Amino acid sequence: MTTNPASGPAKPRVAIVFGGRSSEHPVSCATAAGVMGAIDREVYDVVPVGITTDGRWVEFTDPIESLELRPGHIPEVSAEAATVISPLSTREQSLRVLRPGEPDRLLSEVDVVFPVLHGPYGEDGTLQGMLELTDTRYVGSGVLASAAGMDKHYMKLVLAGHGLPIGPYVVITDRQWQVDQEGALASVEALQFPVFVKPCRAGSSIGITKVDSPGGLVAAIEAAREHDLKVIVEQGIVGREVECGVLGGHGTDAPTPSEVAEIIVESGHEFYDFEAKYLADTEVTLSCPADLPAEVREEVRRLAVASFEAFGCEGIARVDCFYTERGDVVVNEINTMPGFTPHSMYPRMWAASGVSYPQLIDELIRLALDRKVGLR
């Protein structure tokens, strides 16, 4: 923690890092707007740092409202802002601002980074690795958990390796698609239609297509490949979409599951797509606690914690499941940095569990400040 010689310990300085190179850039901006609007400024000094779509770190000085994601407004970090240089060694934890023709200046010392990046080049262990190199504390999971949780292929392998229930799937790599497209399509024959074709390393339902017959596969795979050259094809599961948030998991503290929520997609959307998640206020209902038998809710909570621990997650994660018509609970995926606006599912589940949005932000920062750096 920074120290003011005249007055003793200063408030912890939190760098909120957002934006980034992935297609989820606007979602990250919206998450940053939510966090910056709710964080307790009496407790924390806030240093907002944007990352442009080409990967440049910049100083953010615009109104918070400019980052909100709403119909008719897709936010983006300005490329005109001054460049920010992040710490380059374990001996200093300062952010510096660099402008052409001017000497660099100190922006702020940093006690902890709150990275609210979604998707590749941020949520996938890349930013976490950079922060590990400089012994910078940060909110959320480490390199391995972030990388494996981001890649739906390895996510399935980790879940299955720990004996957790998952649905049938097929992975189509870039090389397979280029060398043997016919064989790649034939591998999908093992699945029952409808199937969902997804980029392996993307989120927010970007690039996902529901395919009802083999004739739609090629177009769906090409659409997914616009976001990631590795594609996963998942067999559609008939059931109710339920979610559970997990919090904690640092040191000897056991992770805690939230109340279980159910996502009910109303008319106008075949599935819980990007528009339904972020741009439509009326087509999606969140029921929390979900109207499920008590033993089913407990099973979802158990699987959420088991998934969190299987990946070695820290701080925050959301686990998405299906409750099938046969009464089974199937794990669909884990998100190590879920959507985190005040209206996102993760904060809403915790609000239903008695933890408000500002309290949740505070707990995540405290967890990050308390954990040790280096191997753990």
Rank of each mutant, 00 (worst) to 15 (best):
F114P: 02
F311Q: 05
R348Y: 00
Q192F: 01
G122F: 09
E325V: 15
E241F: 11
F308E: 01
K156N: 12
T83D: 15
L364E: 00
M1I: 11
I263T: 13
M345P: 00
A190V: 15
G20H: 02
T61Q: 04
K198E: 08
D104I: 08
G207Y: 08
E24I: 07
E283L: 14
P71F: 12
L303I: 01
R137C: 02
Q359R: 14
L88G: 11
L157V: 06
F311D: 01
T341S: 12
A38P: 10
V110L: 08
D281S: 13
E295Y: 15
R225T: 10
Q93I: 01
P120M: 05
G203A: 14
S66G: 06
E363Y: 12
G50L: 05
L98K: 08
E299S: 04
G55T: 09
V35N: 05
G239S: 12
F60E: 00
P338L: 06
T256C: 10
V284P: 02
S267H: 15
R201Y: 03
V218W: 09
R137G: 03
F60M: 00
T282H: 15
G312I: 15
A368P: 04
R96V: 05
G8S: 09
W350G: 04
A223C: 11
I74P: 00
P165V: 13
L185W: 06
G119Y: 09
P115W: 07
Y346L: 00
A184E: 00
V77D: 05
G72V: 07
L292Q: 14
E68N: 05
L106H: 10
L133Y: 14
A145N: 10
P257Y: 07
A148G: 05
K198Y: 02
E314W: 02
Q93C: 05
T252C: 04
E299Q: 10
D40R: 10
L185I: 13
G312M: 13
F308L: 10
A220H: 07
E234R: 04
F193Q: 07
T324P: 09
K152N: 01
D291R: 15
P71K: 11
V17P: 02
L367F: 06
Y278A: 06
L133N: 12
E299F: 01
L131Q: 11
P199N: 14
C313P: 12
D228Y: 15
I232V: 15
P199R: 12
V355H: 07
R297Y: 05
A15V: 13
V27T: 14
S28H: 09
P255C: 04
P87K: 04
M150F: 10
S204Y: 08
P293I: 12
S108R: 04
E222G: 13
E189Y: 06
G129F: 09
